[in-house]
Write a protein that binds this DNA or RNA. Structure first.
Length: 469
RNA sequence: GGCCCGUUCGUCUAGUGGUCAGGACGCCGCCCUCUCAAGGCAGUAACACGGGUUCGACUCCCGUACGGGCUACCA
């Protein structure tokens, strides 16, 4: 099944940090390459000198690395290839596939304002003499691609056959008046030179594809196979973009999502494995990935489902792994505590925390006495002075716990509850409030065992002083 | 404006002429239970609309509506 000749690329422009839409494109390229046993390249499209920033390059690479979307070498930089475009432009000029256009931006804009969306062909058939005159006058010019009559048809792996009448394509610019190549042109040359076999990119490029195919043909290159991915949408069904609420990858890392959670969720956004499985590891995704199963319509980004996916992955992780992962985003977590203590905490919180940051938040009372007590919890479990009486009595009872282990603690709680003929919860919950400050969390016996006798007693005494007020 | 693409529960999706239209997230209820989770069970909820084609359409065709994309000397 493996096809060693498959080569794909992800080509971000470093004008901002990598966001979720970009990751999705990268991911599908990567999954396809890995599934096919091919290569996954990265090409930094940094020819927009104005907006491209070194720091974004670093950020993009870092994000991809964090996600585990490792790329094959070499790493391509478009800016380093500028010379390669020039000679080919000359060839195209010589063969007449491209011609000089002396129209100015203003001319074109006013034509467009007047409702003429398509380039009128003003310079299409200039005579050699006319060209010479303008050249001598020092007029600036662009290179326009001469679109001939006909139709371009291509087969998109996701959308199927798409055909466009050349009447819809005007003679588009291929080289700007400053000599720099435009996107559609550069892309073709880069992809060809890199030996790209499958161009997998966002649906926003569907309309560009016929133009690019024309360039491939003019240059005498074989065209690659195209596959266009549907967009990721916001809740308003509008395409997610940097300016329209697309979160950067860094956010997810900071929020404590595991890379494989993000990858899992993103893979399911617009694709499905053909089974009803939802939780898949990167390797499983690679194994099952198939462009034929990719959706045509855009998918709305749903953070709630990501959160659920994340919780599922967290549950499957070993506590050792989780400890390392937490310390990566929060090096001080549990500092000064025994590793075994930390591991025990993680064990207890594993089914409860859905992200790394939730471990940090939910574990606070294992390290510090509560600074304040949850209001709703108090209202329900520490209503009045009668609770103080009950808990004070229980405190004495606790002195008799032989070994401070959860089994003995449980026995002790139960016998006390029986002795005063009250439900277990009437003891447990106030104690929980006193010790943790919150009504939620793992079994109280587990918590108390970990915290130890002195800490437990101390916190209960403090609570008795402060509460119920 | 023109062209291209799309349209199944609120969301992600399965479905390829005959299904009680399935699953997942969310929400709701119950069970479990010291709480919160996790887990189990049940529930809520969808084929955009109108015409065809057909014995029979979510599935095929044509329109309409709605949404998205492109239409730059951006990428």
């Amino acid at each position: 099944m493996s096809n060693l000749s498959v080569k794909v690329r992800f080509a971000p422009s470093p004008t901002g940090e990598l966001h979720i839409g970009g990751v999705r494109t990268a991911l599908f390229n990567w999954l396809f390459a890995k599934n096919q046993g091919g290569k996954f390249y990265l090409r930094i499209e940094d020819t927009d000198a104005e907006r491209s920033k070194e720091k974004y390059i670093d950020q993009i690479l870092e994000s991809l690395e964090w996600l585990g979307l490792h790329w094959d070498q070499p790493l391509f930089y478009q800016s380093q290839r500028l010379d390669d475009y020039k000679s080919r432009s000359k060839d195209l000029l010589n063969t007449g596939r491209v011609y000089r256009c002396f129209c100015t931006k203003d001319d074109l804009q006013s034509a467009r304002d007047a409702g003429h969306y398509i380039y009128p062909g003003t310079c299409r058939n200039l005579t050699d003499d006319a060209i010479k005159v303008r050249l001598n006058q020092g007029q600036n010019f662009t290179f326009r691609f001469r679109v001939l009559e006909g139709e371009t048809i291509y087969k998109d792996l996701i959308y199927g056959q798409i055909h466009v009448d050349h009447k819809e394509l005007d003679d588009f610019i291929v080289v700007r008046s400053d000599g720099s190549p435009t996107y559609n042109y550069v892309n073709v040359i880069d992809d060809h030179d890199m030996g790209i076999t499958h161009v997998i990119r966002g649906e926003d490029h569907v309309s560009n594809t016929p133009k690019q195919i024309l360039i491939y043909k003019a240059l005498g290159y074989d065209e690659p196979t195209f596959a266009h991915l549907p967009m990721i949408l916001g809740h308003d069904k509008k395409r997610l973009s940097k300016r329209h609420g697309a979160p950067g990858v860094q956010n997810f890392r900071d929020e404590g999502y595991l890379p494989e959670s993000l990858i899992n969720y993103l893979a399911l956004l617009g694709w499905n494995p053909g089974t009803e499985e939802e939780i898949l590891s990167p390797n499983e995704l690679i194994e099952k990935f198939d462009l034929a199963q990719v959706q045509k319509k855009g998918a709305v980004w749903d953070e709630k489902k990501l959160h659920w996916v994340s919780g599922q992955h967290v549950m499957n992780k070993s506590t050792g792994f989780l400890l390392d992962a937490i310390r990566e985003i929060h090096p001080d977590w549990g500092k000064g505590s025994d590793i075994s203590f930390l591991i025990s905490i993680l064990e207890l919180l594993k089914v409860r925390a859905k992200s790394l940051t939730e471990f940090i938040r939910q574990s606070e009372y294992f390290f510090y006495a509560p600074k304040e007590y949850d209001r709703a919890g108090l209202k329900k479990w520490w209503k009045n002075e009668s609770v103080n009486e009950r808990i004070t009595a229980f405190l004495e009872h606790m002195d008799k716990v032989p070994n401070w282990r959860k089994e003995d603690l449980e026995t002790s709680f139960k016998s006390f509850a029986e002795s005063i003929e009250m439900g277990l919860g009437k003891i447990i919950m106030p104690v929980r409030m006193a010790v943790c400050g919150s009504p939620n969390g793992p079994s109280i016996f587990d918590i108390l065992e970990l915290l130890g006798r002195d800490t437990t007693i101390g916190r209960i005494e403090t609570a008795l002083e402060k509460l119920p007020n």
